[in-house]
Design a protein around this nucleic acid. Sequence first.
DNA 1: GTCTATAACGAGATAGAC
DNA 2: GTCTATCTCGTTATAGAC
Lengths: 197, 197
Amino acid sequence: MTTAPAAGTAERILDVAERLVQTRGYNGFSYADVAAELGITKPSLHYHFASKAELGEALIARYHTRFSAALEAIDAAGGDPGIRLRRYASLYADVLDNQRMCLCGMLAADLETLPGRMQDAVVRFFDSSETWLAAVLDEGKASGALRGDGPSHDQAQMVLSTLEGAMLVARSYHDTERFRAVARRLVSSLLAEPHTG
Amino acid sequence: MTTAPAAGTAERILDVAERLVQTRGYNGFSYADVAAELGITKPSLHYHFASKAELGEALIARYHTRFSAALEAIDAAGGDPGIRLRRYASLYADVLDNQRMCLCGMLAADLETLPGRMQDAVVRFFDSSETWLAAVLDEGKASGALRGDGPSHDQAQMVLSTLEGAMLVARSYHDTERFRAVARRLVSSLLAEPHTG
DNA sequence: GTCTATAACGAGATAGAC
DNA sequence: GTCTATCTCGTTATAGAC
């Protein structure tokens, strides 16, 4: 039994690059930025990630994996669909609390400048979120907890769009409460019983 | 009486730069891109806009002016608050039909990399939209056409966030209908009488 | 108002030593 | 696995002629 090992270089590169993409965008950071922060040189980065495109793909893959794990944790924790939606929104709020934009929301803005494989990976992330949301919404309708106005997949697109947009705008104001207010309003609009406040 | 003059060089620079920012982001285009498209040289661009920051400020100023004029046109055309909200959403849909993101939505993603004056101008654009939206929502509540669940300013933040996010996501799918579906759902949620479909 | 020429810097990437 | 040294190209920006 050993102490937990420090994260390997590749992981630390991903940590720094992830934060830089989430705050500055794909075209707003460089290998030099990452290298300087880690106290290594640019060629060392290229040893771990041969190209910026490769690094970008690894970023999305890790983010997607972690996000999917968080969704599984929400399912495993149980609770009614309303609670699950609130916890889903909390995942976004946690990101914003770290002064970051959703990685894939940020990359969606940069999409036209990204390598094709990164573009595809961003869309797959959105697909994944929408599929999970639609399942929760379906379950909520079956139990009577959620309103059934329109197809769940359409509602799921609404939820994803609203949360991504609320992050984008709230970050501009450096105001996470602005995000939370929109998220609360969004979830309330999906509940079977209209809420006040 | 003369024929309409062709747009001056400065306007044509703004036209090209605007499209590039809306599609590629502030850090995804260069003076060389604009110069090549207009068939002039980079130093000629610097004659009209001494720095990229100056060009960026001019882009936001013109966009804001045009957007405000569009809002005044919506007010001047009359119609109930529901119609006005639909026309507001149509302004965004028109942008997306040109395969573009909202200029300030795109710049919101790039915000941390922008000069301070550009950051302030982006936030002022959002403020301006929210103020107009809140006024329409207030009017709608007074006439009974719109639901009054919560302060109009909170609802306005919800509308702005949802439309910006829907643009961002829909553009990733190259699917403007995805945007329109979210916009319809959003406006319906604000109407006094619940709609189906 | 537009040009040629160039400065000064940063980008992504590679060769090859250790 | 990390380094030094270097390459090539693109970036914003300026000087000065026309």
